[in-house]
Design a protein around this nucleic acid. Structure first.
Lengths: 121, 121
DNA sequence: AAAACGATTGAACAATTGTTCATATAATAC
DNA sequence: GTATTATATGAACAATTGTTCAATCGTTTT
């Protein structure tokens, strides 16, 4: 008979002590989801380029971003919307132009750490 | 008439100086792809949990990982394969068990930075 | 007014993703 | 030998993704 409430109880563990210890240190489901989302924000080449460009210049408009990244305004605009939803960029509308900038200052460190990792290979 | 070889030339830029400056600093396509891949490795909750668990314990076998993360062996095994392909984890086969550990030591910093970011909210 | 411009959007599409289920492999136990 | 265990894998599936294309919305210019 199975113990109710946990389809995988500790009795089956190979190294019980380790399992219990790590389980105790585990973060919440929500935390891991948010963590995954944060990484996902930078997990597409186009978005990575946008973030990198905005690390070099405080503000850039959509068409200049597409000049830099060499893709269509539409593709950039769609990705900027994603980044906006993830609260990574904000924008400033001036006339018909939209100037985007990084919203989340922590993202700078995270991105730089990723870049360091890539370039150390 | 359009200038050949570049479907988006600099003459269309709004802030030419910025565009040229950022273009100069741009990394290669390959770099951005690798960067995106690195972030993608951690962009799924299950993979994030695996990496977190392996940050707490040097080595964990598949069934203990699924005990900790509370999902099926199969799901874990599939994700471990992904992480293996991305060179983030390695494994040590002992009898019928496979002990997984982090392969890329830089990933520790990157992951910790992400966690710090999440927890500072 | 019309035309041009920068940006946004929705629909469509192929491509990728993560899980489940069933099966397979390979090592150990009986 | 058979049975059991730990892990791996392939197929199937729904869900998500990123781009393109066309159309649209505001704003500015003429």
């Amino acid at each position: 008979m199975k113990k109710p409430g946990s389809h995988k109880n500790l009795l089956n563990s190979v190294e019980k002590a380790k399992v219990i210890s790590v389980k105790k240190k585990m973060k919440t489901e929500k935390c891991f989801q948010y963590l995954a989302e944060t990484f996902k924000a930078m997990s597409d080449p186009t978005r990575a380029k946008i973030i990198y460009a905005l690390c070099q210049e405080d503000e850039l408009c959509v068409s200049d971003l597409s000049s830099i990244i060499e893709t269509t305004n539409s593709a950039i605009s769609h990705q900027l919307r994603n980044l906006r939803n993830m609260k990574l960029v904000k924008y400033n509308k001036v006339g018909k132009m939209a100037f985007y900038s990084l919203d989340d200052k922590h993202i700078n460190n995270l991105f730089a750490e990723g870049l360091r990792h890539v370039e150390e290979k």
